[in-house]
Design a protein around this nucleic acid. Structure first.
Lengths: 119, 119
DNA sequence: ATCTCATTTGCATATTGACGCAAACGAGAA
DNA sequence: TTCTCGTTTGCGTCAATATGCAAATGAGAT
């Protein structure tokens, strides 16, 4: 009766704060621009690529920063944004693993958790 | 694999259609409910958990279905929704791999590649 | 055929969020 | 100090979307 799903709790993995920052197409484009850069990038540089207002770019970058996706470093007058690669990749992989363990194609035979001697 | 200086294309991995379906907190909660179920679930069953209108749940499920996140099967009068685990997990892992390859912690030294990234 | 139940959809309202402009803020230079 | 540049923020407007109610649709039962 009890199916014992491996991880029934997605509350932290499906956090709205993370995905809400990724829902806007413009913000996704900006995120892609930042990710493509090898070095941390400034607000003005990103705004130079797109044709939207500088203040909008600043707001989008701040949203991504507040969501833990980007890191902001202040150097003089400029603020350099860069991707928090470890955190983002870790989040994505953790969610993928949790989903796979819970509702994966082989999760119906729950032999992966407790040792099941017979083949 | 070829250590490309920067992986150029996130357009398909950062597709707005996928993340736009995940931006709403209510929809994320519904997605978590569906994912927790071992068997495909009906609209009424999901609506019984939350205290929002049945029509709202139906619309959210349709949005997740249109985004390729859920699969809908019609059985008699009921529609059973289930997670497209392979697709979602594949998307998440592909994005994680692309981000890691592009802006990973060791992507700045691209002299050689370690075939086993172990945490 | 009608009836009943599950789901979807039309419509109206409310909330959210993006956008641009202008002003304010902060840090370095003169 | 004032000036300039980069960034952030306050504010107003507008588009997109979430929500609820009621009606419509669809499929099986009677």
């Amino acid at each position: 009766m009890n199916p014992t799903p491996n991880d029934p709790d997605f509350s932290d993995l499906l956090s709205p704060q993370f995905f809400k920052a990724l829902c806007d197409p413009t913000r996704l484009s900006i995120l892609g621009d930042v990710a493509r850069q090898e070095e941390p990038t400034t607000v003005s540089h990103i705004a130079g690529c797109c044709n939207i207002d500088l203040s909008v770019v600043s707001r989008h970058l701040a949203t991504l920063r507040d969501a833990g996706i980007l890191k902001a470093e202040k150097r003089g007058k400029e603020v350099h944004y860069s991707l928090r690669t470890d955190d983002v990749v870790g989040r994505l992989r953790a969610l993928a693993t949790a989903l796979e363990a819970c509702c994966g194609p082989k999760s119906e035979e729950k032999k992966d958790e407790h040792p099941d001697p017979q083949p």
